[in-house]
């Protein structure tokens, strides 16, 4: 929530003058996150878990929709097309196929949930690809990526806890969550060794 809130805040027209909108954010990753949250939270109205759970689902969908709108429509001029080029079809298609094959239940809602779990684990790839192409990440982008990466990493601790105390585990969520966290690892290394020391992330050319 902090990461997404940061992104909306920094892209919000009131907060910053249009020319200051942070560059270097991948619009493609933001679209993948929006698809992830919509596909996963379709049970928003049918399955009430808790006020917190419902509130966060609404926040995730609203904030990522706002980010996509601000980036690709309102501030279209500052969106960096030529560096945000990873083909998302090559991410969406395999996730969709895998969701049809490997899932807990062959029902529309469960397939969409599974698709969303697989998609989330690769949704950051366009962003990481863009950072490698631009060769650097703005500090605020680094904080955003660190928050986004640690969210799923912390879930791994929660899954361990639930395995030992509730004797519950969901292998699909766990495998996808581990893959997702591994994808952030090289970024975490850069974040810890550079950004936290006040340096900018500049990748070797």
């Amino acid at each position: 929530a902090a990461g997404i809130g940061l992104l909306v805040g920094m892209n919000c027209p009131k907060a910053v003058k249009p020319r200051d909108v942070i560059t270097g954010i991948s619009g493609r990753s933001q679209i993948l996150f929006l698809v992830t949250y919509v596909a996963r939270y379709l049970d928003l109205l049918t399955n009430f878990v808790s006020v917190y759970n419902t509130a966060m689902k609404v926040f995730f969908i609203a904030a990522s929709a706002a980010t996509v709108y601000l980036m690709l429509f309102k501030f279209k001029a500052t969106y960096d097309h030529n560096h945000d080029t990873l083909r998302v079809e090559f991410l969406i298609a395999p996730c969709a196929l895998l969701a049809l094959v490997v899932n807990h239940d062959f029902t529309p809602l469960e397939i969409l949930w599974t698709f969303s779990i697989y998609l989330e684990s690769v949704a950051i790839l366009p962003q990481l690809f863009m950072v490698s192409k631009t060769g650097e990440a703005e500090t605020i982008t680094s904080h955003y990526l660190f928050a986004l990466g640690s969210y799923r990493a912390l879930y791994i601790l929660n899954w361990i806890y639930r395995y030992y105390f509730d004797n519950f585990f969901d292998l699909i969520a766990i495998v996808a969550g581990v893959v997702q966290t591994v994808l952030y690892c090289d970024f975490f290394y850069l974040y810890i060794t550079k950004v936290l020391k006040g340096k900018k992330i500049v990748l070797p050319a």
Binding site: D43, N47, N103, E110, N158, L171, I172, A173
Partner: peptide, 10 residues
């Protein structure tokens, strides 16, 4: 079996 239970995580 997780599918029988509703997904209760984000």
């Amino acid at each position: 079996d997780p599918s029988k239970e509703e997904h209760d995580e984000l």
